[in-house]
Every structure is written in C-alpha cells, then in structure tokens.
C-alpha cells in the first residue's frame, strides 16, 4: 500500500466483530472507562473514615526511605533487618531512591542474606534442601522434557544457567565448611603435636 493519508482497511467491520466476539465494544466510549480520567478527585469513594490514619505502633526502629518526611502510619513488619545484610540494608536507606547505590546495595544485601541464611540453616534441625526447595523434581513429574523438546522456546538459551544460580550458594557454603573444617583439623593436629 502506498503511503497515503488513508487508514488501512481492517479485515472485519465493527458489526462483524460485535457478532463474533462476546462483549465487543461494551466499553467503546473512551471517557466511560474505570480509570478515565487518570485522576478523579473523590475523597469519599474509598471507604476511609479518617483524614490521616491512626499510627501503627513502631515496636522497633523501622528503616525508611529518606524521601519520606516520616515513617508512614502503616507498614509491613516482615523480616526485620539482621546481621551483616541488615547493616547493609540500613546503610542503603541512608541513600535516596534516586541513587543507583541504594538499589545495588540492597541487591547485594539480598545475596549476603541468602548465603548467610543457608549457612545458618545447617546448624538447625531444618537445613536447606536444594532438591525440595527448588522444586526441581517437577522436571520428572511435570513433563520437563516434553515441555521443551521440539518446541520453539526462546528461554531454552538461558535455562541451563538456572541450576548454576540455584545450586551455587550450596557449592559456596560447602566450600566454606570444607575450608573451615580443614583449618580446624590442622589447628587441632598442631596443638596435639605441641
């Protein structure tokens, strides 16, 4: 088609589409849609019966973005910061959300948290188990091969990397434990000789 002012003709008319597709055009008027206009001022719509919410008790110091004037009146209480990762997180919250370092430190803290938690789990009666926690046995029970072989899937190019990322912390943890035990054994042997 030459580049003219005309809009390309559609294969089906509106009447044909209305007949073929249930509900076609029931929201045809762009002004009569739930999120139009984007901002619709109506402070009574939500059901809130307060101008500003009562404050949730702050039972421990709660980290917050320095872009907030104060701690928000309601907040989540899951997983308070702890250990080295907690120190990293607290430092990240001294930087604004506009700084890349804020997010990169949080991501690094997540990795430290995961590694530390794996190591600590080996000192408990419920150690991490890479088989059950990764769900990898689904490869057998839910047609891992059939889901991939002969399929034009773009994700097959990078899926082999997933086990490395999933198992990597266990390899690192195993290495740390091995080196630690080896050092301990050497120290005990040396002490025995002395």
């Amino acid at each position: 088609m030459a580049y003219t002012a005309d809009k390309p003709v559609l294969a089906e008319s509106s009447d044909q589409l209305r007949a073929r597709i249930p509900g076609w055009g029931v929201d045809l008027d762009p002004k009569d849609r739930p999120s139009v206009p984007r901002e619709r001022f109506d402070p009574n719509l939500s059901g809130a019966h307060w101008d500003f919410p009562e404050r949730q008790p702050e039972k421990r110091p709660r980290e917050r973005s320095i872009e907030h004037e104060f701690l928000t009146p309601v907040f989540g209480t899951s997983c308070p910061p702890k250990g080295v990762s907690g120190m990293m997180r607290k430092h990240a919250y001294t930087l604004s959300e506009g700084r890349a370092a804020h997010w990169l430190i949080l991501v690094a803290a997540d990795r430290v948290d995961a590694l530390g938690s794996h190591l600590r789990s080996f000192l408990t009666l419920h150690p991490d188990d890479p088989i059950t926690e990764s769900g990898v046995l689904s490869e057998i029970s839910h047609h891992g091969m059939a889901s991939r072989v002969g399929k034009k899937r773009a994700d097959l190019a990078h899926q082999p990397l997933d086990p490395i990322i999933a198992v990597g912390p266990w390899v690192v943890a195993g290495g740390v434990v091995y080196v630690g035990l080896k050092g301990l054994l050497r120290a005990v042997t040396r002490a025995g000789r002395d």
């Binding site: 999120s35 919410p53 907030h68 009146p73």
Partner: peptide, 28 residues
C-alpha cells in the same frame, strides 16, 4: 492502600503514600 492520602483521594490506589515507608517510588 489507605484510601485517604493525596493519591488515594484521586483514585491512584496503587500509588498510596501512607503504606510504604521503604520507597516513595511505589505503593504497598
């Protein structure tokens, strides 16, 4: 979402300012 902040009063419930101390760039 709180239903009463600047954003909630305008229907932007996903951008509530009173529920997420960790970030201003996203709601709760």
């Amino acid at each position: 979402f709180c239903g009463s902040c600047f954003f909630c009063a305008r229907g932007l419930y996903s951008n509530c300012h009173n529920v997420n101390p960790n970030a201003t760039a996203v709601g709760g």
